[in-house]
């Protein structure tokens, strides 16, 4: 806990705290929607970073936990009348359990083989859900408008969902900082650098990796439930979007993998850039190509990401950016 008080860990937490508060006090719908998307990606990218940045396992299937957990939580909401908070927690728990089960098997694979397996898992999950009756098959599930009554009307329900998401994003950042500043996190980073050497030094790699996988899967499940509840429906295409999974990797890399602040910065920058390109008359039709070019330049010339680059160039910032 004492570690959390380090300046570098406090900064992102405080920023998210203020940001959400400002939006809630301001009370405007379009700002809320925009912030919802940004905070969602902050949470997704930060949770991915626990696996990717600290443990060094490249997952292309992070979105599968958003999809499966979100589907499960939404199913409880829509079909069993659970309320939002327990349903989203159950969605997160479901994702963590699935990660635990998968992790035991999949985390034995290293490098590109692991990356490929995560693509396979995502596609298998998507195809399975498309055929799975209780989850509505290819058409998915939706909630009746009347469900929102329990939250004091649709508008109020959207604000409650936003608040939950904001708290989730905060929790993700705090979890990320706690992991990084802990003995467990040191073990993960030892695995990232050299798994065999880490084991010889006493790091229980199989258990540590699985636990990291579970933690990183918990938050997407929670976020997924909130997101689908906000939308009022869920369908396989939205839930298991491989492209989005890769964009999460881009965000983590852009901001700086293995740092607490980086994924958050990367998520906001990437989404901000996309928003700008999509609305700019000049780039509108080419937004994907411009983002791609931008990504290519980052990967080729700034592989440590923004935070990594700043830390390297200006050592004085190291205490501030962790």
């Amino acid at each position: 806990m004492r570690n959390l008080l380090r300046l570098g860990y406090l900064l992102p937490v405080v920023l998210i705290l203020i940001w959400g508060l400002v939006v809630i006090i301001h009370g405007e719908d379009t700002l809320r929607e925009k912030t919802f998307t940004l905070l969602m990606f902050v949470g997704m990218a930060s949770s991915l970073n626990i696996l990717l940045g600290y443990t060094g396992y490249v997952s292309f299937g992070h979105i599968v936990f958003f999809g499966l957990g979100g589907y499960f939580g939404f199913y409880l909401l829509a079909q069993h009348d659970w309320s939002l908070i327990p349903a989203s927690l159950a969605g997160g728990a479901m994702s963590a359990v699935i990660a635990g089960l998968l992790g035991v098997a999949v985390l034995r694979l290293r490098g590109a083989y692991f990356a490929l397996a995560t693509i396979g898992i995502n596609e298998a999950a998507r195809a399975f859900v498309t055929n799975f009756g209780p989850f509505g098959g290819a058409t998915g599930l939706y909630v009746n408008f009347s469900v929102y009554e329990a939250y004091g009307g649709a508008s109020q329900a959207l604000w409650s969902t936003f608040t939950c998401l904001w708290i989730t994003a905060l929790a993700t950042i705090i979890a990320s900082a706690l992991v990084k500043g802990s003995r467990f996190g040191l073990g993960l980073m030892a695995i990232r650098e050299d798994e065999d050497a880490a084991m010889v030094m006493g790091v229980k790699a199989p258990q540590a990796k699985t636990l990291a996988f579970m933690i990183s899967a918990f938050f997407p499940g929670l976020i997924g439930t909130l997101y689908f509840f906000k939308n009022g429906n869920v369908e396989p295409g939205d839930a298991f979007h491989l492209h989005m999974s890769i964009e999460l990797l881009v965000m983590v890399m852009l901001g700086g993998q293995g740092t607490v602040f980086g994924p958050m910065l990367g998520a906001v920058t990437y989404e901000g850039l996309r928003g700008y390109l999509l609305t700019s008359p000049l780039f509108k039709s080419l937004h994907l190509a411009v983002s791609g070019l931008f990504l290519l330049i980052i990967v080729l010339f700034v592989p440590a990401g923004v935070v990594g680059w700043i830390r390297h160039r200006l050592p004085i910032t190291r205490r501030l950016l962790e």
Partner: peptide, 21 residues
Amino acid sequence: VRPLNDLTVRENVMVGGCFGR
């Protein structure tokens, strides 16, 4: 030699301390 390159010298030694005997 297989140092954990992206960790500091101190952190490298701490890995031993934290996870060894």
